[in-house]
Structures are given as structure tokens and as C-alpha cells.
Simulated assay, not measured.
Amino acid sequence: MAGALEYRGPAPVDGVDVATMGQLPAVEAQATDTTLYGDQVSTLRRADAIWGETLSPGYLTVWATIAPRSIAASVAKFCVYAAHTGLAGFDFGVYVGPNLSSVERKATVSGLAWIATVGMKSVNLGTLTVNRGDVVAFAGLTTGSGTAPRLASTTPATGAGASALLNETPYSVYRSGQAAPLPTTLNLNDAVWTRANQKFWGSLR
């Protein structure tokens, strides 16, 4: 008596035939900014940092992120894509706090030498404790009437070892009419801030 064909091979497991399971392609590991560069907390992926964001004179500009892990940071990084000319001052600060309404300045560096040449800049933090969920903010302030520096996540795409940047993710805040020194605390939820179509990169490690 004729009947329907019956499958008698290995039983499927979650839709995959056991007989062919070993032939599935392996999943390749994806390098991250942590494995590539040592970044532990950063405001965005390096590949997402738009090149050459301008740090305009007289504007206190702040960019921030939420720490995805707890770390004891020793270095903060930012990168000068294009150097300044003719400015009077530069201040850079690292802030940490439990939320956007309350971040406290933990480290500051000042001086035009920081933005006089193109390249990655390292700010020594000693040991800075950052807890998972903390807000980490970076602030930059230039003064004077010269040409503002531009910040990115890598140096210009020329010369040995240079690399181009891809994509952009805009978002930073600023307030005008500012002068040094940087504030000891910031409330990034305050109405005094204006949202900018810019996204700066900074990292802790």
C-alpha cells in the first residue's frame, strides 16, 4: 500500500539539521574601540565621530556620555584635527556625576600648547573612579579672536598611519559669552544650554 514519504534522517535541533550543524559558518569576532585603542568609556565610536568639529571661541562646549561600566580611569583622550591660530586661551575639563543635572569637574588642563599641533592628546587623571551609569562629560573652551581648532577622533587623513572617518552622529550643547576658568559643576539639563548639530569625541581609559 502506497503511503507518504517519511523523513528518517537526524532530528532537527532548533531548525538546524544535526548532520549539517558542523558545516555552519563561524561567527567572526568584531574588533571594538576597547580592543583596538583601549577606550573604556567614550562619547561615541571613533567610526561615528564627524571629522573636524570646531571649538568656537567664547563658547563653552560640552559633550557627554553614560558610562557603560565601572572603571578606574587614568587617562582622558581628545584629538586635535586642525590646530588653532591666534587664539588667546584654551581649557579642557573632565566631569563626572550621577546624572546630567549634577556633574563635577575632576580634571582640567589649560594652555594653547594643547591645540597648537594636530594629534591625539592625553590628559593624566591620576586615578578617577567612574561607576557604571555615571555621566562622563568633556568640556572645551577657547578664547580670543583667531582661528578655532577642530577636534575629531583621529588626525587628518594624510601622512603615515592616517585614517579617514566615517559617518556622523550630531549632538553637543553650548552656551555663549563664557570665559575661563571652567565651572566646577555643570547642570546639562539647564535651559541655558543650546543643542548643537555637532558631536565631539572623547574617551577615558
Score class of each variant (00 low, 15 high):
Ala2Ser: 15
Val13Trp: 11
Gly15Leu: 09
Gly15Arg: 08
Val16Thr: 15
Ala19Thr: 12
Thr20Ser: 14
Met21Arg: 15
Pro25Val: 03
Val27Met: 10
Glu28Trp: 10
Ala29Glu: 10
Gln30Arg: 15
Thr32Tyr: 08
Thr34Arg: 12
Thr35Cys: 02
Gly38Cys: 10
Val41Leu: 04
Arg45Leu: 14
Arg45Ile: 02
Ala47Phe: 12
Trp51Asn: 06
Gly52Leu: 05
Glu53Ile: 03
Thr54Tyr: 05
Thr54Val: 11
Pro57Tyr: 00
Pro57Cys: 01
Tyr59Glu: 12
Leu60Met: 06
Ala64Ile: 01
Ala64Gly: 05
Ala67Asp: 03
Pro68Lys: 12
Ala72Glu: 15
Ser74Tyr: 00
Ser74Asp: 09
Ser74Ala: 11
Ala76Asn: 02
Ala76Gln: 03
Phe78Asn: 02
Phe78Gln: 04
Val80Phe: 07
Tyr81Trp: 11
His84Pro: 02
Gly86Lys: 07
Leu87Phe: 02
Ala88Arg: 13
Asp91Cys: 06
Val94Asp: 04
Ser101Glu: 12
Val103Phe: 01
Glu104Pro: 00
Arg105Lys: 15
Thr108Gln: 11
Val109Phe: 04
Gly111Tyr: 05
Gly111Asp: 03
Trp114Leu: 11
Val118Ser: 07
Val118Met: 10
Gly119Thr: 04
Val123Gly: 00
Leu125Lys: 02
Gly126Ala: 04
Leu128Cys: 13
Arg132Phe: 00
Arg132Asp: 06
Gly140Ser: 08
Thr142Asn: 07
Thr143Ile: 08
Gly144Asn: 03
Gly144Leu: 05
Gly146Pro: 11
Leu151Tyr: 08
Ala152Arg: 01
Pro156Tyr: 10
Ala157Ser: 11
Ala157Leu: 06
Thr158Val: 15
Thr158Lys: 13
Gly161Gln: 04
Gly161Met: 01
Ser163Ala: 14
Ser163Gln: 14
Ala164Glu: 08
Ala164His: 03
Asn167Gln: 13
Glu168Phe: 10
Pro170Phe: 00
Ser172Glu: 02
Ser172Cys: 08
Tyr174Ile: 01
Gly177Phe: 03
Gln178Phe: 13
Gln178His: 12
Thr184Gln: 09
Thr184Ser: 13
Thr185Tyr: 03
Ala191Leu: 14
Ala191Asn: 14
Val192Phe: 05
Val192Ser: 15
Trp193His: 08
Thr194Asp: 05
Arg195Gly: 06
Ala196His: 02
Gln198Pro: 00
Gly202Leu: 09
Ser203Thr: 13
Arg205His: 04
